[in-house]
């Protein structure tokens, strides 16, 4: 009786494990599915010209170089603004503040910043950067807009990486007459840098995929020539993908999927890079 009872418990456990494992495996299916489907449908359009030429015939021919470059510039511009501010805010919040109404307010602001729909960031960018600061519809305005959106992530990851630095290191440094700022600069930030960097890379790859906000602040479907100044309008992969998919009749399928493939390859590359940075840091 007792023994039987235990056996049935083992059975329940086994069933539970199988259900849990299947749920976990379900996550893989869409990822693999999307990638395979995109490769199958889009790889035929991938060639040297596609990657290095400008579009022709409203995107039905030629390549997508301006869109690739535009996205790369956007990523760099985003991180150029979001990372320094993120690190400095992270240092301030983790090292120089105590729990009071101000820090609670800042924390709430960060959480809400992360929850603001991206199109709202677009409108914000249009009002503040494009019109308010008179930057015009431009790479710069779009970078600032995406940076504002990325801030929530860079601040949060910086702060968490800084807090994770063991207090023994800080104490060891302070206890030999090293100032707090020097301790942050020479002990805390180097220790936290892999975590900070991981967050920054993920923020960049998210910025690469944003579509809605950049439409409002300067992305264009077709721009003559490559962007050369931060005040130029620009093409970007997600917006290009949206337009060729939704607005150009008779667009060959492999071009749509080819654009999607390039975009996702860039995003996955950066996600992998973030993973490598994290693993390397853990080994150290």
């Amino acid at each position: 009786m007792e023994i039987k009872n235990i056996k049935s418990r083992y059975l329940t456990q086994r069933v539970a494990i199988v259900i849990l494992a299947v749920s976990a495996l379900l996550v893989i299916i869409p990822v693999i599915g999307i990638i395979i489907y995109m490769i199958a449908n889009g790889y035929s359009s991938l060639n040297w010209e596609f990657l290095t030429a400008s579009p022709a015939q409203a995107g039905k021919a030629g390549g997508i170089l301006p869109a690739i470059l535009g996205t790369v510039y956007l990523m760099l511009g985003t991180i150029l603004f979001a990372l320094p501010v993120g690190i400095m805010a992270g240092v301030y919040l983790s090292e120089y503040t105590r729990a009071n109404w101000l820090t609670r307010l800042i924390n709430m602001a960060i959480i809400n910043l992360a929850g603001v729909p991206s199109i709202v960031f677009g409108l914000f960018g249009l009002a503040v950067f494009v019109l308010g600061l008179n930057l015009g519809m431009s790479l710069l305005a779009a970078s600032l807009t995406l940076a504002a959106q990325a801030l929530a992530m860079t601040i949060t990851t910086s702060r968490e990486a800084i807090i994770a630095v063991p207090k023994e290191y800080r104490e060891g440094s302070l206890a030999i007459g090293v100032s707090k700022w020097q301790t942050i600069r020479h002990i805390v930030l180097p220790q936290a840098s892999p975590g900070i960097l991981t967050g920054a890379i993920l923020a960049m790859s998210r910025a690469a995929g944003e579509t809605a906000p950049i439409i409002v602040v300067g992305a264009a479907f077709l721009v003559g020539g490559l962007p050369v100044s931060p005040f130029d309008r620009f093409m970007a992969l997600p917006y290009h993908l949206y337009t060729v998919s939704a607005h150009i009749p008779g667009m060959p399928g492999e071009i749509k999927w080819g654009v999607a493939l390039v975009l996702i390859a860039m995003v996955l590359f950066f996600n992998m890079l973030a993973g490598i940075v994290r693993i390397k840091a853990r080994k150290r």
Binding site: P166, E168, Y169, E171, G172, S173, L174, A175, I176, G177, V178, S179, I187, Q191, R284
Partner: peptide, 19 residues
Amino acid sequence: VVELRKRVGMVFQKPNPFP
């Protein structure tokens, strides 16, 4: 305090060399 700690150093319970 920084100058004080320079003159009055401290060793901790758990060895804490920097990485």
